[in-house]
Amino acid sequence: MNPVLKTEGLTKHFGGVKALDQLDLTVRQGAIQSIIGPNGAGKTTLFNVISNVIPPTVGEVFFNGENITRMQTHTIAAMGLTRTFQNLRLFSEMTVLENVMVGMHLRSKGGFFTSALKLPWVFREEQRIRGESREWLRFVGLHDHTDQIAGSLPFGNQKSLELARALASKPKLLMLDEPAAGLNMRETQDMVQLISQIRDLDITVLLVEHDMDLVMEVSDHVVVLDQGRKIAEGDPETVRKDEVVLKAYLGEE
């Protein structure tokens, strides 16, 4: 099958530090692929460079065969690639529902003048956005919190909200940056459930995670990074037994 995402020789330096070093990565269509690695392995940097929140030093990124290395973040999003953030970036002053409605930005068209005049089609579009956003909230189990201010939700709910917001854009590839970080056992289990359901929506998932159990449970394919390099990849079982991987992790502790 064609890869959804491919990076070639992706490198990012911060001063003298190599956060990413000549990384070649392939993400297959329809898979749930995980990236693991000790702290400072370059996982979050990888997401930032792919979505061009920060530009790479060298290297190329291809999305569905197209070179997106120098495209702006919103253009990349419009092609069907979106993400969540490790430290949550909700629109904390807006309501829960409004957050998800922003997620539907790409799938609606109302502009300055048409909205100011509130043309009939804008009105209908607005109802569609509202309705579908409620569905997404139901999907992640937040339908009882629609009118709450996002910043006032408990942390676990904020994580689900960010997921709902990203899903509302109906991406082809969704990058999840540590979806379980900060969640308790129960919430983590719910998150595992959610992620498996996302696959059924025809959305490819690339995820960075610390929680090994979660990774082993949901992933079809695992890539291990250490100091910006790929040191191993394969299905969860293979990776779990890989000696290089064990060394990288034990070396850290």
């Binding site: 929140v53 953030f85 909700l90 629109f91 922003v102 930005h105 502009g111 990203a166």
Partner: peptide, 21 residues
Amino acid sequence: SRVGRALRAIHGSEIAASVLG
């Protein structure tokens, strides 16, 4: 409207807004 939400999203986080297109 969609525009107003986009504006407030920019206020909240420019990066998160751009990631959503």
